[in-house]
Amino acid sequence: MPASRLWRDTLLTAVVPLIWGSTYLVTTQWLPPGLPFTAGVLRVLPAGLLLLLWTRHLPQQQEWPRLLLLSLLNIGAFQALLFVAAYRLPGGIAAVLGAIQPLLMMALLWGLERQTPRPLVLLAACAGLAGMAVLLNAGNARWDSIGVLAAAGGAVVMALGMYLARRWGSSLPLLALTGWQLALGGLMLLPAALWLDPPLPALSAANVAGYAYLSLVGALLAYGLWFRGLRLLPPVAVSALGLLSPVAAVILGWVALGQRLHGWTLIGMVTVLASVLCVQLASSRRPARAG
């Protein structure tokens, strides 16, 4: 792939974690409180149905088992674990645990495809994890065992879902594949929203705008670009781009909510950005294979 096209695709994919970094701000400022699973359903299900109505492609019969598993991993299970972690952990610990995703992807590629990670990629991923801990000051936060398991589980299911989506491929066009995963994942979340969340209250204009943003921008646009990146870019590089999400959240908190940026926060941010850049540069080369 030409270098110019590679970096264009990388920048387009990097838009996704920047969008996802705005989720906390939108959720806390525009959405009614105490409805985590409902927010997940309203985020992904309408976006999935819109894409299905637009594309009108059915999966082949033999693709259904894989499609259901991908929908569970990438959307249903990930969203559920994400919200459990968000409600039981400070954001710092949840984000630091999510930052292990590039390392998990390297482990999957090494264990299942015998792709030995390049030392620079491994070092950069570890630096990104350390930078995330500094950025979010997670060291002084309170640990909750269920929240920790949920956050770690979320990183695992997303890494596995990304790996399988890349390895299996699909006969479906990109937007149809995105729509099916969003719709099926939203249906999988629906029982939790009905049984565990209180009823949806009367919505204000701000509430409607918040849900619309999360669905149209945070799901329909973002997941379309994300799955496109998975098809075109090295999987470890895509995983590392996810570290941009909490960086965007910190910057938005500073700009929109007046939250202070301390010296250690800036050091952590620079470390994370340098880590992401190093992973993109190093993982774009042909991977080495073991023995």
Rank of each mutant, 00 (worst) to 15 (best):
L73W: 06
A193M: 01
R142E: 15
A219R: 03
M132Q: 00
G131V: 00
G92R: 15
F227Q: 04
P119A: 09
L49G: 11
V236W: 01
P59R: 05
V41S: 13
L241P: 00
A80V: 14
A130D: 00
V84S: 03
P46E: 13
C278S: 14
G224Y: 08
A124S: 06
A124Y: 02
L72W: 10
L230T: 04
L273Y: 01
P17R: 02
L177K: 04
S145I: 15
D197C: 02
V272G: 06
A288Y: 11
A209F: 14
L196S: 13
V16W: 05
L52M: 09
T28Y: 14
V255M: 11
D9I: 00
A274K: 02
A99M: 03
V255H: 12
A274F: 12
L69M: 14
A125W: 09
L252C: 09
R118S: 11
P198S: 04
A47L: 11
A193I: 12
L257H: 04
R231E: 12
S283N: 07
R43K: 08
A77K: 08
L89Q: 13
P65C: 07
L230H: 07
L73N: 10
A155K: 01
Y211N: 06
S4Q: 11
S239Q: 15
G139W: 14
P234H: 01
G154L: 06
L109K: 02
P59Y: 07
G258T: 07
G268Y: 00
L68D: 12
A159W: 01
V217P: 02
